Computed example of a mutant assay.
Amino acid sequence: MVKIIFTTFLIVFIAELGDKTQLQTMLLATQSNTLWPVFVGASMALILSSLLGVIAGSYLTRYVPASYLQTSAGVVFIVIGILTLAGKI
């Protein structure tokens, strides 16, 4: 169980570094006199989005094989990357 927690932490931590959400959080922090409300709000948002991902993932794997979900996620990421490079997103 500790291995799963550590792996999940590491993957999410690395994925979140430097993304648009972190940049927006930094901008909000520059506009605030106190950092705690920004930290608490950003933390709650990440917790809620992670909870929704866990619930959706556990629900989907009941009906769709995990290999299909992994392949679909990979294809979606590639398509988003191509659209981003093409300036469509």
Rank of each mutant, 00 (worst) to 15 (best):
M1P: 00
V2C: 11
T8Y: 00
F9K: 03
V12S: 05
F13M: 04
I14E: 11
A15T: 14
E16L: 06
L17A: 11
G18E: 04
K20Q: 13
K20W: 11
T21H: 11
Q24I: 08
Q24F: 09
Q24H: 08
L28K: 05
A29R: 02
T30G: 01
S32F: 12
N33T: 13
N33I: 11
T34Y: 08
T34P: 00
W36H: 08
V38C: 02
V38T: 05
A42G: 07
S43H: 00
M44R: 03
M44T: 11
A45D: 00
L46A: 14
L48T: 00
S49H: 05
S50W: 02
V54R: 04
V54E: 11
V54L: 13
I55T: 06
G57V: 04
L60E: 12
T61Q: 14
V64G: 07
A66P: 02
S67K: 13
S67F: 15
Y68P: 04
L69N: 14
T71P: 03
S72R: 10
S72M: 15
A73Q: 14
G74C: 10
G74I: 03
G74D: 05
V75D: 08
V75C: 09
F77R: 09
I78C: 13
G81Y: 02
G81M: 09
L83N: 12
L85M: 13
A86F: 12
G87D: 12
G87R: 08
I89V: 15
